[in-house]
Design a protein around this nucleic acid. Structure first.
Lengths: 214, 214, 214, 214
DNA sequence: CATGAATGAGAGTTCATTCAT
DNA sequence: CATGAATGAACTCTCATTCAT
């Protein structure tokens, strides 16, 4: 009860996570290059040396942040989509709404923002993201669209390219807002964007006289 | 005796431009932070001091690159679009094809790539881009869509959000390719993307039984 | 095992002082501008970075030197003088002799020499010196002379200007020697200067038939 | 009358002097180290290269300034003093008043100020000054005092040290004012200083019951 | 485990000086 | 004579990383 009391144990085990939290906060605020390890340590309530006890380098902090954020994505909603058999517009709408929910919470936005900001300086992160997220989401979506086209539930569109039409408007909307500060008066208004986007998308990919948006 | 001998190059008025070319090349290759002014100078065939003769700082090189690239954009195709009276799908298709042409040339791609890579560390550049490019293109496009909706040539879509549906797929396509290396086997295949995109888009925004893609 | 082995010196609280010593030595030798921080570090037995661990800039070293040297001056002999009630020539002689002692030791001379050399490039130091040293010594001396005049122990001299007559000859003597290398054959011969100076001064400010030099 | 008209000739011949004027102005304002040759050139209305046409280095400008200012001093009032036969207090008073006049004009103050500021970084200048000015003034003054002592017109003072008592108060007064900004409310008030100084000095060096200040 | 003092390679920037025109 | 574009050595300061305690 002395050296193993709550405080001590929690600290010992949660340390790496606390450091990633601190690093994310500072990276998000100042960018990777402008962030000093000293400040990450301070924000995490430890000394600079301790950071290096858990992470071999400043870059490793960056990778740790991304790895932690990316991990749950792959396991989550993907399997469902891949095996879905019915109207492909349903999982497409689900995916879009999942994205919407994800992006609505500023907390969730911090990591993508950071990735967007730094990715071109971190080939390893780009590769990780490509492999763990895009490499799973894109093929699943492509297959979904392809099945829809094959079954006649969708018009004869190019499945691979259509994936860009599904996520593109959302990406563009968030990028405009986050990078350039171009946003509607209401704020992000993601719901408005999603509604209009799905409306156009489904009109665009459904056969003439096709069903309405699910 | 040719135009590149030493004597001619001295005092050449093209000096600043040559430096921006060199800077663009190195920034594109290594990123802003990892680029040494020394290397920009070497690549431009001058000494480090000479760079500072024309640009007060390394950052000024970055700004110079963007400013030079952004300048012609605003003056170019915008006015036409704003005053166009007929089928709004025509100028939309034109804009998309203009983008396609622009992005097809790897030379033209270098600046947007660089901007994408560094913009979050250069608020001034983001602001410049927002003001000079987005601040002109987006309102023009929005008005165009709004007119189309008003005239009944387009379905009742949200003009402001629809702009994201027009450029989003292209942005996503280029970003996937340039940032993550996710691209079709043929390479960028921008034509395939554009064809599919316009197909879906126009089906998505045209009234039921509307005209075909222009 | 002695007090200068590596382990003991690490974290020593004397670090800043050691650096000031080193800086003073190099500044005195080469002047501020011609001194490289690297050399200060080497002379202090540390690395360049360590200097910046304790002092934020090269200028801060300069200020540190002066501040450290100036600190004890104000607290020392001033209070006595201010409250002295008897013959004002006594504390004047004491002050002059204190100066004489101070300036006799080449070690003590280093700081004034450095100040003299660099002061015009360091307004902050001039201000510090003015406030902490001159701002206390001069008014005290002035008051002393004024009291002497009022009590009739001194002739009717201008107290404020007489202060210049008290310290001027010493300043001139040291400046001639230190700056221009003009000095008697014996060396500085401060005692000779002081004796002659006080002889003239006291004859100059005492009433006709006044007392002898104390 | 074409290529030798006033403008051209004056420029050609007065160039070096104009450059020294410009250099003095900038050195006085910013100090030697902080002055850029570029600015001296600009202030002189010529190009940087032209400065190097007349002066081999930045330091040479400094030396030129001092040499030009020092030249007339030696030839001027010195001979008179050396051969003066009457009351030595007369030439002493004259010297002090000459100094007073010299220092009263801010224009004349610029060079001494600059010398004071930079001399310790320019051994050559110190040496020049020592040789050309001090080496002549001090022996002359010393001899004068010695003669006064020998003739009984002055008390038995140490001639060499007494020189410090003659110029010291003035030096101290100017240094206090120029270096530390310590000055009477009226401004420099050199006349007040000189009057009090000579009063004390002559009372100090004259035999008891000696004559009044000339 | 944790600390934080110490390191030192490295980069941006300045500016006296040169020299082709 | 005059120019001013070009040079490049030199310097200050930063900060990721190490390691003795």
């Amino acid at each position: 009860m002395n050296s193993t009391d709550k405080k001590f144990r929690r600290r010992a085990e949660a340390r790496p996570d606390e450091m990633l939290d601190a690093a994310l906060a500072v990276f998000a605020e100042k960018g990777f290059a402008a962030t000093k390890v000293d400040e990450v340590a301070r924000r995490a309530g430890v000394s600079k040396g301790t950071v290096y006890l858990y992470f071999p380098s400043k870059e490793a902090l960056m990778e740790g942040i991304v790895r932690r954020a990316v991990a749950p994505i792959a396991e989550r909603a993907l399997p469902d989509m891949a095996q879905f058999e019915g109207d492909p517009r349903l999982p497409i709408a689900m995916l879009v709404h999942t994205l919407q929910n994800l992006l609505s919470d500023p907390n969730n936005l911090a990591v993508p923002r950071l990735i967007l900001r730094e990715i071109m300086n971190f080939p390893a992160i780009a590769e990780l993201y490509r492999r763990e997220v895009l490499g799973k989401v894109i093929p699943a979506l492509t297959a979904l669209v392809a099945r829809g086209v094959a079954s006649g539930q969708l018009r004869k569109v190019d499945p691979e390219m259509t994936v860009r039409s599904i996520v593109g408007p959302i990406v563009a909307h968030v990028a405009l807002s986050e990078v350039f500060g171009v946003r509607p008066e209401e704020g992000l208004a993601l719901d408005r964007l999603v509604e209009n986007h799905l409306d156009i998308l489904f009109h665009g990919i459904s056969p003439a006289g096709g069903e309405e948006t699910p």
